[in-house]
């Protein structure tokens, strides 16, 4: 018997792709490695310092002493191992590559589309490029990161990914939006 397990993406068969590269685009990432870093109690500052100083990874704020680290180049176990080496006793690193789904919404109407479900002021002066936080999008909690003036990443619990994509399509109903898996 051959045991070569193939992983499926939670949105395989349910993404409801809207083809093309329209003015606004929602890309679902297939194989982003995602880790959660939890600072060891009393070592929040050290953990944050290491994450900031190390340019190799982009850490996104979730809450005090808690960050999401995303990587498009590492395998999940490599990402966890690399982070664990760098952070040592200052943090616990948990693989969440299968627990979360990363999406990128880009386009001139991106902030306006998000305002149909998100209460946070996304004006570039209020939520600048590089900022990230966890917030409510309609009924779902998502981690939102601004990666460009017209570009946002959303990270959501895997079991809610289908609902989030369905919501984003409705939020973008008045705007031109294409939806598909990201091509690497």
């Amino acid at each position: 018997m051959a045991y070569d397990y193939q992983a499926v993406h939670v949105l395989d068969g349910t993404i409801g792709a809207v083809p093309g590269q329209r003015a606004n685009h929602l890309a679902v990432h297939r194989a982003t490695a995602i880790a959660v870093v939890l600072a060891a109690p009393g070592h929040g500052a050290e953990a944050a310092g290491i994450l900031v100083a190390d340019g190799a990874f982009e850490a996104r704020f979730c809450g005090p002493g808690e960050w999401l680290v995303l990587s498009e180049v590492h395998a999940p176990e490599t990402l966890v191992a690399e982070l664990a080496i760098r952070l040592g006793a200052f943090a616990f690193v948990v693989d969440q590559s299968h627990g979360r789904v990363a999406l990128t919404l880009s386009g001139p109407d991106a902030a306006r589309i998000l305002a149909n479900g998100i209460a946070v002021d996304l004006h570039p002066e209020a939520f600048a490029v590089g900022r990230a936080a966890t917030m409510l999008c309609n009924h779902l909690s998502v981690n939102l990161a601004r990666t460009g003036i017209d570009r946002f990443d959303l990270v959501v619990m895997r079991s809610f990914a289908e609902a989030l994509v369905a919501d984003l399509k409705v939020m973008a109903r008045s705007h031109d939006l294409s939806v598909d898996f990201a091509t690497r």
């Binding site: 979730c62 809450g63 005090p64 808690e66 936080a133 966890t134 917030m135 409510l136 909690s141």
Partner: peptide, 8 residues
């Protein structure tokens, strides 16, 4: 509790 945010 900030349940949908930082969970603090």
């Amino acid at each position: 509790q900030h349940v949908a945010g930082c969970r603090r």
